[in-house]
């Protein structure tokens, strides 16, 4: 087996529990992400998704284990890993445009001012923002526009890995839908590797190549890796008619509703690798995966 583009190897995170002891958030978690892959991680609140993401971003350090990206160990944040946080990732004293230009200027220090400006504007337009909002401060933008700016900024620096922590968590369903479409459109043109956290099962199916499922904490682990066997380009209306859609959705709901609790707790394994689950009703020898409740 060749090593994937991003390889997470036996990652553990422990925090002091405030009573002199330690709580283990997750232990010996291992998984990989291929180049150009869109991976979404699903799990209950508090299982450690953000913790994993911060480690991938280099913003936090794991208690044990390593993350290897493109053959190099991740240590500290870098422009190679772009991050979109759920909130506050825009600097409120800068205009929408300046929030992007400062990133572009940091990424491409020898570009001229005009190059930086046109590159930034191009990316803001790509996420559906019009020129009349470029000079507004984040506080003068709607939540959806703000998140568009964050996404534009993240894509504008073309990181090797894009990390999204519940980017649409604070948005209403309608806005969520349009921005998901925008994200898919921008992503399709770049072949960017994406690692995204969400709470929304439908969003995960629409966007992902693969969904990682986490069990509940403490001692959470990435238990399954579910392939999304629905061809691209996808679209929110047609996707529900695909024969695999409800099968996959059911599997995810079952996992989050039942298995995530049943499978919780520490294991003896030296390494917790997710089990690959492939659900494909269209394949000639369609067979329910063993974990799918019948």
């Amino acid at each position: 087996m060749t090593t994937p583009f991003l390889s997470v190897e036996r990652l553990s995170q422990r925090y002091p529990d405030g009573e002199g002891g330690q709580t283990t958030i997750f232990e010996n978690a291992s998984f990989g992400i291929e180049r150009g892959e869109f991976v979404v991680i699903l799990g209950h609140s508090g299982c450690g998704k953000s913790t994993i993401m911060n480690i991938l971003a280099g913003l936090a350090e794991a208690s044990e284990g390593v993350v290897i990206m493109d053959g190099k160990e991740v240590s500290g944040p870098s422009l190679d890993r772009g991050v979109v946080f759920q909130n506050y990732s825009l600097l409120p004293w800068l205009s929408a445009l300046k929030n992007v230009t400062f990133a572009v200027a940091a990424r491409y220090p020898d570009w001229s001012k005009d190059q930086v400006l046109s590159h930034s504007k191009k990316h803001l337009e790509m996420v559906g923002l019009s020129a009349d909002v470029f000079h507004r401060k984040p506080s003068q933008l709607s939540g959806g526009m703000r998140q568009r700016v964050s996404i534009a900024r993240a894509f504008s620096i073309s990181p090797k890995l894009l990390l999204l922590d519940e980017p649409f968590g604070a948005l209403d369903a309608l806005t969520r839908g349009t921005i998901q479409d925008e994200l898919l459109k921008v992503w399709a043109g770049t072949n960017q590797t994406v690692f995204m956290i969400t709470h929304d099962i439908d969003e995960a199916i629409l966007l992902a190549d693969r969904i990682l499922l986490m069990t509940n904490g403490p001692f959470a682990r990435v238990a399954e890796s579910v392939e999304i066997t629905i061809p691209r380009p996808r679209n929110r209306i047609e996707i529900v008619e695909h024969p695999n859609y409800y099968a996959i959705r059911n599997h995810l709901v079952q996992f989050l509703g039942k298995h995530s609790k049943e499978l919780a707790g520490p294991t003896d394994a030296v390494e917790n690798r997710p089990e690959t689950v492939r659900i494909d009703k269209t394949a000639p020898a369609a067979r329910s995966p063993k974990k799918l409740a019948v």
């Binding site: 280099g58 913003l59 500290g76 422009l79 990732s89 600097l91």
Partner: peptide
């Protein structure tokens, strides 16, 4: 200064001086 803003500076590899002037100073101004 909000940690998220400092993290924005860190993920964009701004040096100590540029972080001070581009993020911390305007945030604390």
């Amino acid at each position: 200064v909000r940690k998220d803003w400092v993290n924005v500076a860190r993920t964009h590899e701004l040096g100590a001086l540029r972080t001070a002037f581009m993020v911390i100073l305007p945030a604390a101004a």
